[in-house]
């Protein structure tokens, strides 16, 4: 599950390509039965991003669950709360700051995804082109520096906003929980 974290993104993209390509084992089924094609589509770009951020999300969620005080769950049990009831009223709310911050970081990572997307979904402007892909494309064209600079500014702004937002949220939520 943590493989995409350590694997070069291009390799992840290539593995997706041979699995979900129209001739791949999963891709062929999707294409023949449902008429769904993932390669070189927006959905494909999303899938590539999803696979890349999956380990980040899992890690964030697991850490916040592990940090939850088991004593509170015990207290909820003695008050008559069953397993699902406890999950939704105690465990999830207490883990929410960690999950939310994980989500924001994952979203920012998605915006910056390069290798896996270009391999699996190519770089089609307006469809599968992520910000770094657009910046790279701009740099390949003579006189594209200005456009690359603009796009980089957008990228930096998004990254900073994401970072500040996640800090602010975590602080607010933790203050609410008295931590």
């Amino acid at each position: 599950m943590h493989l995409p974290l350590v694997l070069p993104p291009v390799v992840t993209g290539w593995l997706l390509l041979i699995t979900f390509g129209v001739r791949g084992p999963v891709g062929a089924l999707l294409h023949d039965w449902f008429g769904i094609r993932l390669v070189f589509t927006t959905a494909g770009a999303s899938l590539a991003c999803g696979v890349m951020i999956f380990p980040i999300m899992v890690r964030a969620i697991r850490l916040s669950f592990e940090a939850a005080d088991p004593g509170l769950e015990q207290a909820a049990r003695t008050l008559g709360a069953g397993r699902l009831d406890r999950l939704f009223t105690i465990t999830l709310p207490l883990a929410s700051p960690g999950i939310l911050v994980g989500g924001i970081v994952a979203y920012a990572t998605c915006l910056g995804e390069f290798g896996a997307v270009i391999t699996f979904a190519a770089s089609i402007p307006g469809e599968t082109q992520t910000l770094p892909l657009a910046i790279y494309a701009a740099l390949q064209v003579p006189g594209g520096e200005a456009k690359a600079a603009q796009l980089s500014l957008v990228s930096i702004t998004l990254a900073l906003t994401g970072l500040l937002l996640s800090e602010w949220f975590a602080k607010r939520l933790n203050a609410m929980l008295g931590r």
Binding site: R77, L79, G178
Partner: peptide, 29 residues
């Protein structure tokens, strides 16, 4: 299981739910 025993337990550390107001803590059980 504890949730079906109809037993109240007061711990040494109060173990109030930190994400709920006092009123909602009181109404939980």
């Amino acid at each position: 299981p504890p949730e079906r025993r109809r037993i109240g337990l007061v711990f040494q550390d109060a173990r109030l739910f930190p994400h709920m107001s006092v009123a909602n803590n009181l109404r939980y059980g």
